[in-house]
């Protein structure tokens, strides 16, 4: 009786539930199944227990990818937010047309396809003829091979990703800045706070929820970094990660194991390891989050 009464409701959610099951639940379940099997997509599956997981965790590529990832996150996330915050303050200080022009200009990299962004930066980083080496040449400095020198490759990638992500973070922070009432700044001015003290004591604490979101989002995105380092290096499953795996990252390693070496069981296990890391990171950030204040 109750089921009959609610039938129209079930019918309304059915299309979504079907799509959700086919494109979300089934891949997760099958991925979980394959993560315990050896499978190359052509042969039948062979159960290997936790072998895929232990092989990945014990591999040199995984350790290198994790080390690169940790270094990348520690630098990219704070630097990206700092740059975005400064840009947001700059845009916020302009009014009318100039504000719109700057906002659009800084947001441009976000709408640029990753392929295009990487191509532009590959050109900027090109030895001898690249823009950056040209600038170095003006100052009499020697030409550098940014994308082939293991000491500079990671930092070259960080520069690109900060450039790409700054626009998005800036727009979010700018929205937060617009929400801070002007009279709070006026009160701070009357209290004797200098512009820098206003940023420190008013802007940053009042932007705390926004900065928390931007940081969480930044960390989650950084954990999945793939496209730009892939495009800056070999861009093929035969050659990726750059010289000495200096730009090897977990997602890239996972993709390589799957579509390069056809070890889909290992790739699935890699996916679950990465998911566990992302969930742990996010949970940790929420646990350590300072108790929000009632605005």
């Amino acid at each position: 009786m109750i089921a009959k009464k609610h039938m129209p409701h079930y019918m309304m959610v059915l299309p979504f539930m079907l799509l959700f099951a086919v494109f979300f639940l089934y891949p997760i379940a099958s991925g979980f199944f394959y993560s315990f099997h050896d499978w190359n997509a052509t042969t039948t599956t062979r159960f290997v227990g936790l072998d895929n997981y232990t092989r990945i965790i014990g591999s040199r590529d995984f350790k290198k990818a994790m080390w690169n990832l940790a270094t990348y996150i520690v630098i990219t996330v704070p630097l990206g937010i700092l740059v975005a915050f400064c840009l947001a303050l700059l845009v916020d200080s302009f009014k009318g047309t100039w504000s719109n022009i700057f906002r659009s200009a800084f947001f441009m990299p976000v709408v640029l396809p990753a392929f295009l962004a990487a191509t532009v930066w590959r050109w900027i980083y090109t030895p001898n003829f690249g823009l950056l080496n040209m600038v170095l040449g003006w100052f009499g400095l020697p030409s550098l091979n940014f994308l082939n020198d293991t000491g500079s490759m990671l930092y070259a990638l960080i520069a690109v990703d900060v450039w790409v992500s700054a626009g998005f973070n800036m727009v979010i922070i700018l929205a937060g800045l617009k929400n801070i009432p002007t009279d709070v700044y006026e009160a701070a001015r009357l209290d004797g706070a200098s512009p820098l003290q206003q940023v420190r004591y008013v802007t940053v604490p009042m932007l705390y929820p926004v900065l928390f979101f931007v940081t969480t989002y930044g960390v989650i995105s950084a954990l999945q970094v793939f496209d730009v380092p892939w495009l800056l290096t070999g861009s093929s499953f035969a050659s990726y990660g750059g010289r000495s795996n200096a730009l090897m990252f977990p997602v890239m390693d996972m993709m390589g194991r799957g579509f390069g070496s056809l070890k889909f069981g290992q790739a699935s296990a890699y996916g679950f390891i990465l998911t566990a890391i992302i969930v742990l990171f996010t949970a940790a950030m929420f646990v350590f989050r300072k108790k929000g204040y009632d605005q």
């Binding site: 009432p181 009279d183 006026e186 009160a187 009357l190 209290d191 004797g192 604490p205 009042m206 204040y293």
Partner: peptide, 28 residues
Amino acid sequence: PARRGVAMVFQSYALYPHMTAFENMAFS
């Protein structure tokens, strides 16, 4: 403004929401 020797009370109170009442009053 800070050197004029004037203090202002705003319509919206303009208190710093992340500070306690003590910290608000002590800020200047």
